[in-house]
């Protein structure tokens, strides 16, 4: 579980350095020291702003977005027999002990 202790939910939102670095790592982003400082400040400000959602009603059901009307011409589900075990394994790589045998490039299997 990714838990960010740096978020102060009771007081004003603040992101500490460790939290910010963890979010950057999860985002696969390398930040310069300057970016870290600036983006940390901006994110805290944005999160403070979005906290106003706490005042919105919570009981409402969330719709599926994009709306399903866009999918109305999909065909009906159709049941078909699946491929058998032998057929599925026929195209699998050959196993040798605990390994999978891979041919050299250009070599016929």
């Amino acid at each position: 579980m990714f838990f960010f202790p740096g978020l102060h939910v009771r007081g004003r939102v603040r992101l500490d350095e460790a939290t910010l670095r963890r979010v950057a790592e999860l985002s696969r982003l390398l930040l310069s020291a300057d970016e870290e400082k600036g983006i940390g400040r901006d994110l805290a400000e944005i999160l403070e702003k979005v906290r106003q959602l706490r005042a919105a009603p919570s009981s409402h059901e969330a719709r599926f977005w994009p709306e399903t009307r866009a999918f109305q011409d999909l065909r009906e589900d159709a049941l078909r027999p699946s491929l058998g075990r032998e057929a599925l394994l026929a195209s699998a790589p050959r196993r040798v002990d605990d390994l999978v045998e891979v041919p050299f490039p250009g070599e016929a299997t």
Partner: peptide, 20 residues
């Protein structure tokens, strides 16, 4: 951040409900 476990419901799901 808002998709992370622990914050997904508080931010993302709440936002989807209010969007509706």
């Amino acid at each position: 951040y808002v998709l992370s476990e622990g914050y997904y419901d508080a931010f993302y799901m709440k936002a989807q409900r209010v969007r509706s």
